[in-house]
Design a protein around this nucleic acid. Structure first.
Lengths: 169, 169
DNA sequence: CAAGATACGTCAGCCTTGTTGACACTCCAA
DNA sequence: TTGGAGTGTCAACAAGGCTGACGTATCTTG
Protein backbone atom coordinates (compact mmCIF):
# COMPACT_ATOMS: atom_id res chain seq x y z
CA UNK A 1 0.00 0.00 0.00
CA UNK A 2 2.72 2.38 -0.90
CA UNK A 3 0.28 5.09 -1.80
CA UNK A 4 0.32 8.73 -1.02
CA UNK A 5 1.77 9.90 2.22
CA UNK A 6 -0.35 7.16 3.71
CA UNK A 7 -3.73 7.56 5.32
CA UNK A 8 -1.79 6.61 8.38
CA UNK A 9 0.61 9.42 7.99
CA UNK A 10 0.00 11.01 11.31
CA UNK A 11 -2.55 13.57 10.26
CA UNK A 12 -4.61 12.59 7.23
CA UNK A 13 -7.35 10.74 8.95
CA UNK A 14 -8.43 13.56 11.09
CA UNK A 15 -9.53 15.36 7.99
CA UNK A 16 -11.19 12.46 6.24
CA UNK A 17 -11.35 14.16 2.91
CA UNK A 18 -14.16 13.38 0.53
CA UNK A 19 -11.63 11.71 -1.68
CA UNK A 20 -10.56 9.32 1.04
CA UNK A 21 -14.15 8.49 1.78
CA UNK A 22 -14.91 7.96 -1.88
CA UNK A 23 -12.07 5.50 -2.01
CA UNK A 24 -13.53 3.69 0.94
CA UNK A 25 -16.90 3.52 -0.77
CA UNK A 26 -15.44 2.04 -3.89
CA UNK A 27 -13.37 -0.38 -1.87
CA UNK A 28 -16.56 -1.69 -0.32
CA UNK A 29 -18.15 -2.05 -3.73
CA UNK A 30 -15.29 -3.94 -5.34
CA UNK A 31 -14.52 -6.02 -2.30
CA UNK A 32 -18.08 -7.12 -1.88
CA UNK A 33 -18.04 -8.34 -5.42
CA UNK A 34 -14.92 -10.36 -4.80
CA UNK A 35 -16.40 -11.61 -1.60
CA UNK A 36 -19.48 -13.07 -3.28
CA UNK A 37 -17.82 -14.27 -6.45
CA UNK A 38 -16.76 -17.71 -5.30
CA UNK A 39 -20.07 -18.88 -3.85
CA UNK A 40 -21.89 -17.28 -6.77
CA UNK A 41 -20.11 -19.61 -9.13
CA UNK A 42 -21.15 -22.66 -7.16
CA UNK A 43 -24.70 -21.45 -6.82
CA UNK A 44 -24.95 -20.80 -10.49
CA UNK A 45 -24.21 -24.40 -11.34
CA UNK A 46 -27.12 -25.57 -9.26
CA UNK A 47 -29.47 -22.82 -10.34
CA UNK A 48 -29.62 -21.20 -6.99
CA UNK A 49 -29.02 -17.57 -6.18
CA UNK A 50 -27.62 -15.49 -3.40
CA UNK A 51 -30.94 -15.57 -1.65
CA UNK A 52 -30.65 -19.31 -1.25
CA UNK A 53 -27.16 -18.95 0.08
CA UNK A 54 -28.24 -16.47 2.70
CA UNK A 55 -31.06 -18.71 3.85
CA UNK A 56 -28.79 -21.72 4.10
CA UNK A 57 -26.20 -19.73 5.94
CA UNK A 58 -28.48 -18.45 8.64
CA UNK A 59 -30.26 -21.74 9.12
CA UNK A 60 -26.92 -23.39 9.54
CA UNK A 61 -25.91 -20.75 11.99
CA UNK A 62 -29.01 -21.17 14.13
CA UNK A 63 -30.64 -24.52 13.53
CA UNK A 64 -34.29 -24.56 14.54
CA UNK A 65 -34.75 -20.89 13.87
CA UNK A 66 -38.23 -19.82 12.79
CA UNK A 67 -39.30 -18.20 9.58
CA UNK A 68 -40.11 -14.97 11.36
CA UNK A 69 -36.69 -14.97 12.89
CA UNK A 70 -35.08 -15.34 9.53
CA UNK A 71 -37.19 -12.51 8.17
CA UNK A 72 -35.80 -10.17 10.80
CA UNK A 73 -32.26 -11.14 10.03
CA UNK A 74 -32.50 -11.05 6.29
CA UNK A 75 -34.65 -7.96 6.08
CA UNK A 76 -36.85 -9.13 3.23
CA UNK A 77 -40.54 -9.78 3.03
CA UNK A 78 -41.86 -13.12 4.04
CA UNK A 79 -43.27 -13.69 0.60
CA UNK A 80 -39.85 -13.32 -0.89
CA UNK A 81 -38.24 -15.56 1.66
CA UNK A 82 -40.99 -18.09 1.31
CA UNK A 83 -40.30 -18.66 -2.34
CA UNK A 84 -36.69 -19.40 -1.57
CA UNK A 85 -37.51 -21.67 1.34
CA UNK A 86 -40.10 -23.55 -0.63
CA UNK A 87 -37.59 -24.35 -3.30
CA UNK A 88 -35.01 -25.44 -0.77
CA UNK A 89 -37.55 -27.70 0.89
CA UNK A 90 -38.73 -29.18 -2.39
CA UNK A 91 -35.13 -29.93 -3.23
CA UNK A 92 -34.66 -31.55 0.14
CA UNK A 93 -32.06 -29.19 1.52
CA UNK A 94 -34.16 -27.71 4.27
CA UNK A 95 -36.72 -29.19 6.59
CA UNK A 96 -39.48 -27.30 8.43
CA UNK A 97 -40.77 -28.78 11.64
CA UNK A 98 -43.98 -27.56 13.23
CA UNK A 99 -43.29 -25.94 16.58
CA UNK A 100 -44.13 -27.96 19.65
CA UNK A 101 -44.79 -25.06 21.96
CA UNK A 102 -46.45 -22.89 19.40
CA UNK A 103 -47.77 -24.80 16.46
CA UNK A 104 -47.88 -21.66 14.33
CA UNK A 105 -44.14 -21.63 14.11
CA UNK A 106 -41.98 -23.55 11.68
CA UNK A 107 -38.54 -24.50 12.87
CA UNK A 108 -36.01 -24.75 10.11
CA UNK A 109 -33.23 -27.28 9.83
CA UNK A 110 -30.77 -28.29 7.15
CA UNK A 111 -30.90 -31.85 5.89
CA UNK A 112 -27.72 -33.72 5.21
CA UNK A 113 -27.87 -32.53 1.66
CA UNK A 114 -28.42 -28.97 2.84
CA UNK A 115 -25.46 -29.19 5.16
CA UNK A 116 -23.34 -30.36 2.27
CA UNK A 117 -24.19 -27.46 0.01
CA UNK A 118 -23.91 -24.90 2.76
CA UNK A 119 -20.54 -26.33 3.58
CA UNK A 120 -19.31 -26.06 0.01
CA UNK A 121 -20.51 -22.49 -0.24
CA UNK A 122 -19.13 -21.28 3.02
CA UNK A 123 -15.87 -23.05 2.42
CA UNK A 124 -15.39 -21.21 -0.83
CA UNK A 125 -16.15 -17.97 0.90
CA UNK A 126 -13.98 -18.72 3.87
CA UNK A 127 -11.08 -19.53 1.59
CA UNK A 128 -11.38 -16.13 0.07
CA UNK A 129 -11.64 -14.43 3.37
CA UNK A 130 -8.83 -16.41 4.87
CA UNK A 131 -6.60 -15.42 1.99
CA UNK A 132 -7.49 -11.78 2.44
CA UNK A 133 -6.91 -11.99 6.18
CA UNK A 134 -3.56 -13.62 5.69
CA UNK A 135 -2.51 -11.08 3.12
CA UNK A 136 -3.51 -8.16 5.28
CA UNK A 137 -2.30 -9.45 8.63
CA UNK A 138 -3.86 -9.76 12.08
CA UNK A 139 -3.60 -6.11 12.89
CA UNK A 140 -5.54 -5.20 9.77
CA UNK A 141 -8.19 -7.83 10.42
CA UNK A 142 -8.83 -6.31 13.78
CA UNK A 143 -9.43 -2.92 12.19
CA UNK A 144 -11.49 -4.39 9.41
CA UNK A 145 -13.88 -5.91 11.88
CA UNK A 146 -14.13 -2.72 13.88
CA UNK A 147 -15.04 -0.59 10.91
CA UNK A 148 -17.56 -3.09 9.60
CA UNK A 149 -19.22 -3.27 12.93
CA UNK A 150 -19.42 0.48 13.16
CA UNK A 151 -21.00 0.59 9.73
CA UNK A 152 -23.93 -1.66 10.59
CA UNK A 153 -27.33 -0.43 11.60
CA UNK A 154 -27.55 -0.58 15.38
CA UNK A 155 -30.25 -3.17 15.07
CA UNK A 156 -28.15 -5.40 12.90
CA UNK A 157 -25.24 -4.87 15.20
CA UNK A 158 -27.25 -6.42 17.98
CA UNK A 159 -28.02 -9.37 15.79
CA UNK A 160 -24.40 -9.63 15.02
CA UNK A 161 -22.95 -9.22 18.47
CA UNK A 162 -25.46 -11.07 20.50
CA UNK A 163 -25.75 -14.10 18.30
CA UNK A 164 -24.00 -17.12 19.81
CA UNK A 165 -26.98 -19.42 19.53
CA UNK A 166 -30.20 -17.51 19.57
CA UNK A 167 -31.96 -20.16 17.55
CA UNK A 168 -34.28 -21.18 20.31
CA UNK A 169 -37.15 -23.61 20.27
CA UNK B 1 -15.51 -25.24 16.76
CA UNK B 2 -15.86 -24.39 20.37
CA UNK B 3 -16.06 -20.67 20.90
CA UNK B 4 -12.63 -19.25 21.33
CA UNK B 5 -12.00 -16.88 24.17
CA UNK B 6 -12.01 -13.71 22.21
CA UNK B 7 -11.61 -12.80 18.57
CA UNK B 8 -10.59 -9.54 20.06
CA UNK B 9 -7.93 -11.11 22.20
CA UNK B 10 -4.77 -9.90 20.54
CA UNK B 11 -3.38 -13.23 19.46
CA UNK B 12 -5.94 -15.77 18.30
CA UNK B 13 -5.88 -14.42 14.82
CA UNK B 14 -3.11 -16.63 13.66
CA UNK B 15 -5.42 -19.60 13.92
CA UNK B 16 -8.26 -18.19 11.90
CA UNK B 17 -10.87 -20.66 13.01
CA UNK B 18 -13.91 -21.32 10.89
CA UNK B 19 -15.92 -19.53 13.49
CA UNK B 20 -13.86 -16.39 13.19
CA UNK B 21 -14.15 -16.51 9.45
CA UNK B 22 -17.89 -17.03 9.65
CA UNK B 23 -18.12 -13.95 11.78
CA UNK B 24 -16.20 -12.02 9.19
CA UNK B 25 -18.54 -13.20 6.49
CA UNK B 26 -21.57 -12.09 8.42
CA UNK B 27 -19.94 -8.82 9.23
CA UNK B 28 -19.53 -8.15 5.52
CA UNK B 29 -23.15 -8.99 4.93
CA UNK B 30 -24.58 -6.77 7.64
CA UNK B 31 -22.17 -3.95 7.04
CA UNK B 32 -22.86 -3.86 3.33
CA UNK B 33 -26.51 -3.49 4.11
CA UNK B 34 -25.85 -0.58 6.40
CA UNK B 35 -23.56 0.88 3.84
CA UNK B 36 -26.20 0.97 1.11
CA UNK B 37 -29.16 1.86 3.29
CA UNK B 38 -28.86 5.62 3.19
CA UNK B 39 -28.54 6.08 -0.58
CA UNK B 40 -31.21 3.45 -1.10
CA UNK B 41 -33.70 5.62 0.71
CA UNK B 42 -32.94 8.61 -1.48
CA UNK B 43 -33.04 6.54 -4.64
CA UNK B 44 -36.34 5.07 -3.70
CA UNK B 45 -38.00 8.44 -3.55
CA UNK B 46 -37.03 9.16 -7.13
CA UNK B 47 -37.77 5.70 -8.42
CA UNK B 48 -34.20 4.91 -9.15
CA UNK B 49 -32.31 1.85 -8.02
CA UNK B 50 -28.82 0.90 -7.06
CA UNK B 51 -27.98 0.40 -10.69
CA UNK B 52 -28.54 4.09 -11.32
CA UNK B 53 -26.45 4.99 -8.35
CA UNK B 54 -23.54 2.93 -9.58
CA UNK B 55 -23.67 4.52 -12.99
CA UNK B 56 -23.79 8.03 -11.55
CA UNK B 57 -20.96 7.27 -9.20
CA UNK B 58 -18.56 6.04 -11.82
CA UNK B 59 -19.41 8.74 -14.31
CA UNK B 60 -18.76 11.29 -11.62
CA UNK B 61 -15.50 9.61 -10.79
CA UNK B 62 -14.26 9.61 -14.36
CA UNK B 63 -16.10 12.21 -16.40
CA UNK B 64 -15.95 11.50 -20.10
CA UNK B 65 -15.67 7.80 -19.60
CA UNK B 66 -17.10 5.67 -22.38
CA UNK B 67 -19.92 3.20 -22.31
CA UNK B 68 -17.59 0.27 -22.84
CA UNK B 69 -15.43 1.45 -20.03
CA UNK B 70 -18.36 1.53 -17.70
CA UNK B 71 -19.32 -1.95 -18.76
CA UNK B 72 -15.93 -3.23 -17.69
CA UNK B 73 -16.09 -1.56 -14.34
CA UNK B 74 -19.63 -2.48 -13.49
CA UNK B 75 -19.45 -5.99 -14.84
CA UNK B 76 -22.92 -6.05 -16.32
CA UNK B 77 -24.17 -6.51 -19.84
CA UNK B 78 -24.63 -3.59 -22.16
CA UNK B 79 -28.33 -4.26 -22.42
CA UNK B 80 -28.64 -3.95 -18.71
CA UNK B 81 -26.51 -0.85 -18.51
CA UNK B 82 -28.22 0.64 -21.49
CA UNK B 83 -31.58 0.51 -19.81
CA UNK B 84 -30.20 2.45 -16.90
CA UNK B 85 -28.29 4.99 -18.98
CA UNK B 86 -31.24 5.60 -21.26
CA UNK B 87 -33.37 6.49 -18.31
CA UNK B 88 -30.71 8.75 -16.85
CA UNK B 89 -30.33 10.54 -20.16
CA UNK B 90 -34.06 10.90 -20.65
CA UNK B 91 -34.27 12.41 -17.22
CA UNK B 92 -31.47 14.80 -18.03
CA UNK B 93 -28.97 13.58 -15.46
CA UNK B 94 -26.42 12.23 -17.87
CA UNK B 95 -25.19 13.47 -21.21
CA UNK B 96 -23.48 11.43 -23.92
CA UNK B 97 -21.12 13.26 -26.23
CA UNK B 98 -19.85 11.77 -29.42
CA UNK B 99 -16.13 11.14 -29.25
CA UNK B 100 -13.87 13.54 -31.06
CA UNK B 101 -11.08 11.11 -31.78
CA UNK B 102 -13.32 8.17 -32.36
CA UNK B 103 -16.83 9.09 -33.24
CA UNK B 104 -18.13 5.65 -32.37
CA UNK B 105 -17.56 6.32 -28.73
CA UNK B 106 -19.95 8.04 -26.41
CA UNK B 107 -18.37 10.00 -23.62
CA UNK B 108 -20.52 10.25 -20.58
CA UNK B 109 -20.90 13.30 -18.38
CA UNK B 110 -23.18 14.32 -15.58
CA UNK B 111 -25.37 17.33 -16.11
CA UNK B 112 -25.87 19.82 -13.33
CA UNK B 113 -28.90 17.87 -12.26
CA UNK B 114 -26.91 14.66 -12.35
CA UNK B 115 -24.18 16.17 -10.26
CA UNK B 116 -26.75 17.23 -7.73
CA UNK B 117 -28.23 13.78 -7.30
CA UNK B 118 -24.88 12.07 -7.25
CA UNK B 119 -23.81 14.52 -4.62
CA UNK B 120 -26.80 13.82 -2.44
CA UNK B 121 -26.27 10.11 -2.73
CA UNK B 122 -22.59 10.08 -2.08
CA UNK B 123 -22.96 12.53 0.76
CA UNK B 124 -25.36 10.23 2.50
CA UNK B 125 -22.96 7.38 2.02
CA UNK B 126 -19.94 9.36 3.05
CA UNK B 127 -21.67 10.43 6.22
CA UNK B 128 -22.17 6.83 7.10
CA UNK B 129 -18.64 5.92 6.31
CA UNK B 130 -17.22 8.91 8.09
CA UNK B 131 -19.14 7.98 11.21
CA UNK B 132 -17.87 4.43 11.03
CA UNK B 133 -14.31 5.61 10.49
CA UNK B 134 -14.52 7.96 13.41
CA UNK B 135 -15.97 5.32 15.66
CA UNK B 136 -13.31 2.81 14.76
CA UNK B 137 -10.30 5.07 14.69
CA UNK B 138 -7.47 5.66 12.21
CA UNK B 139 -5.64 2.48 12.99
CA UNK B 140 -8.73 0.44 12.22
CA UNK B 141 -9.41 2.29 8.99
CA UNK B 142 -6.01 1.40 7.75
CA UNK B 143 -6.66 -2.27 8.38
CA UNK B 144 -10.12 -2.06 6.92
CA UNK B 145 -8.77 -0.81 3.66
CA UNK B 146 -6.04 -3.41 3.55
CA UNK B 147 -8.42 -6.30 4.01
CA UNK B 148 -10.89 -4.96 1.49
CA UNK B 149 -8.19 -4.54 -1.07
CA UNK B 150 -6.95 -8.06 -0.49
CA UNK B 151 -10.47 -9.33 -0.97
CA UNK B 152 -10.94 -7.88 -4.45
CA UNK B 153 -10.37 -9.76 -7.65
CA UNK B 154 -6.95 -8.84 -8.97
CA UNK B 155 -8.55 -7.26 -11.98
CA UNK B 156 -10.77 -5.07 -9.89
CA UNK B 157 -7.85 -4.22 -7.69
CA UNK B 158 -6.14 -2.74 -10.67
CA UNK B 159 -9.21 -0.67 -11.42
CA UNK B 160 -9.20 0.41 -7.85
CA UNK B 161 -5.54 1.19 -7.37
CA UNK B 162 -4.75 2.68 -10.68
CA UNK B 163 -7.63 5.07 -10.82
CA UNK B 164 -6.68 8.64 -10.03
CA UNK B 165 -8.17 9.94 -13.23
CA UNK B 166 -8.01 7.17 -15.77
CA UNK B 167 -11.00 8.57 -17.63
CA UNK B 168 -10.50 7.60 -21.24
CA UNK B 169 -8.78 4.71 -22.86
C1' DC C 1 -12.06 0.94 -52.00
C1' DA C 2 -14.05 -3.26 -49.97
C1' DA C 3 -14.28 -6.04 -46.09
C1' DG C 4 -13.94 -6.89 -41.50
C1' DA C 5 -13.70 -5.29 -36.71
C1' DT C 6 -15.36 -2.22 -33.05
C1' DA C 7 -18.50 0.68 -30.27
C1' DC C 8 -22.91 1.42 -29.35
C1' DG C 9 -27.95 0.93 -29.28
C1' DT C 10 -32.16 -1.81 -29.27
C1' DC C 11 -35.80 -5.46 -29.60
C1' DA C 12 -37.50 -9.63 -27.55
C1' DG C 13 -37.76 -12.77 -24.01
C1' DC C 14 -36.30 -15.11 -19.79
C1' DC C 15 -35.05 -15.51 -14.67
C1' DT C 16 -34.30 -14.25 -9.87
C1' DT C 17 -35.64 -11.87 -6.17
C1' DG C 18 -37.57 -8.04 -4.46
C1' DT C 19 -42.53 -5.90 -3.67
C1' DT C 20 -48.04 -5.66 -2.18
C1' DG C 21 -52.49 -7.70 -1.53
C1' DA C 22 -55.34 -11.23 0.07
C1' DC C 23 -56.16 -15.07 2.84
C1' DA C 24 -55.82 -19.25 6.02
C1' DC C 25 -54.31 -21.41 10.27
C1' DT C 26 -53.13 -21.20 15.12
C1' DC C 27 -53.00 -19.30 19.63
C1' DC C 28 -54.56 -16.42 23.30
C1' DA C 29 -57.43 -13.45 25.87
C1' DA C 30 -61.84 -11.25 26.65
C1' DT D 1 -66.66 -18.41 21.23
C1' DT D 2 -65.00 -14.92 19.06
C1' DG D 3 -61.78 -11.37 17.66
C1' DG D 4 -57.06 -9.92 17.29
C1' DA D 5 -52.22 -10.96 16.80
C1' DG D 6 -48.66 -13.88 14.97
C1' DT D 7 -47.37 -16.68 11.37
C1' DG D 8 -47.16 -18.85 6.85
C1' DT D 9 -48.83 -19.27 1.88
C1' DC D 10 -50.43 -18.12 -2.76
C1' DA D 11 -50.95 -14.77 -6.68
C1' DA D 12 -49.48 -11.08 -9.30
C1' DC D 13 -46.31 -7.54 -10.44
C1' DA D 14 -41.69 -4.77 -11.00
C1' DA D 15 -36.69 -3.99 -11.17
C1' DG D 16 -32.79 -5.28 -13.01
C1' DG D 17 -29.90 -8.93 -14.07
C1' DC D 18 -29.11 -12.28 -18.41
C1' DT D 19 -28.72 -14.20 -23.55
C1' DG D 20 -29.38 -13.85 -28.42
C1' DA D 21 -29.86 -11.41 -32.59
C1' DC D 22 -29.53 -7.36 -35.30
C1' DG D 23 -28.86 -2.57 -37.13
C1' DT D 24 -25.84 1.36 -37.71
C1' DA D 25 -21.95 4.20 -37.62
C1' DT D 26 -17.29 4.37 -37.71
C1' DC D 27 -12.61 2.93 -37.72
C1' DT D 28 -8.88 -0.09 -39.71
C1' DT D 29 -6.68 -3.00 -42.78
C1' DG D 30 -5.73 -5.85 -46.86
Amino acid sequence: MAERPGPQGGHGLLYLTDEQLRKGIEAMFFAYRGFTAAPDRILDEQDYGRAHHRALHFIQRSPGTTVGNLLDILGVTKQSLNRVLRRLMEDGLVEARVGREDRRERHLHLTEKGVALERALSEAQRDRMRAAYRAAGPQAVQGFRQVLEAMMDPEMRRQFDGDAKAGGR
